Amino acid sequence: MAKQFTLYSHPVGPNGWKVAQVLCELGLEYETVFKEFGDGENGMKTPEYEKINPNGRIPALVDHSNNDLIIWESGAIILYLVKKYDTEHKLYPASLEEQALVDTWFFFQMTGFGPYTGQAVWFKVLTGNKNVEAADRYVAEVHRMCKVLNGQLEKEGTGWLVLGKCTIADLSFLQWVRFLYRLGIDLEKEYPLVNKWKETMLASPGVKASTVGEVWAPAPTE
């Protein structure tokens, strides 16, 4: 039987796995099509794939139960999923006020933590630290935002960012937090509450289910 969704993703890229984890937490069935970087036969920059996502990036999602609706950008996909399918408000609350609290941290990841971590890895690791000034700037910003996260987790005292439970705000950070070892950041030593939060999410059923049968290339936790 055909799956309800088709998810276009990448084996390592964090944003596709964010969507997979939400799909699994909500018990939604999907098929993953892994794309490659560039304009090769299975690349994200091919005309065929750009018909699905004109920006030539992952993730993109097709909802076959809703007239093959196509959504791209991980944040837009996740908000669509919880607003349409999270009828029990497991990951996204019902009230406008509580939604605003979740959205605050969700968009902090989307517009700050994710992009800055990606740039830090690019300049410090993937390009061989050739531009030291840029690498240092982005790594410093990642440290600053880790302090923000650690402080919020300490303030809340529940192990979660807001509302005392796991929401899309928490899940949106997970794969990016797992990238931090590449920057030489020792979470357990430097940001212990962030590390504990990460480990709790890694043990959740939805996160575990999102890796079953997939070409999973997890980042080491050390």
Rank of each mutant, 00 (worst) to 15 (best):
G13S: 14
G16N: 03
V19E: 05
A20R: 05
A20N: 00
Q21W: 13
V22F: 07
L23E: 03
L23K: 02
E25I: 04
L28F: 11
L28I: 10
Y30N: 01
T32R: 02
T32E: 02
T32A: 04
E36R: 15
D39W: 03
D39S: 15
E41I: 06
E41D: 14
N42I: 01
G43S: 05
M44H: 05
T46C: 02
P47K: 01
E48W: 11
E48F: 10
E48D: 15
E50D: 05
E50M: 15
K51D: 10
I52R: 08
I52F: 07
N53R: 13
P54G: 05
G56W: 09
G56P: 08
R57I: 14
R57H: 10
A60I: 11
L61C: 08
L61Q: 08
D63L: 12
D63W: 12
H64Q: 09
S65G: 14
N67R: 11
D68A: 04
D68R: 05
I70S: 09
E73C: 06
E73H: 04
S74N: 13
S74H: 11
G75Q: 06
A76W: 04
I78R: 08
L79Q: 14
L79F: 07
Y80L: 09
K83E: 15
K84L: 09
Y85P: 03
Y85E: 03
D86Q: 00
L91Q: 06
Y92R: 00
A94H: 10
A94Q: 15
A94M: 10
S95G: 07
L96N: 12
E97P: 03
Q99N: 00
Q99C: 00
Q99I: 00
Q99R: 04
L101K: 15
D103E: 13
D103G: 03
D103A: 09
T104V: 02
T104D: 05
W105F: 01
Q109G: 00
Q109N: 03
M110L: 15
M110D: 02
T111R: 04
G112E: 07
F113E: 08
P115D: 02
P115T: 03
Y116L: 12
T117R: 03
G118K: 03
W122V: 07
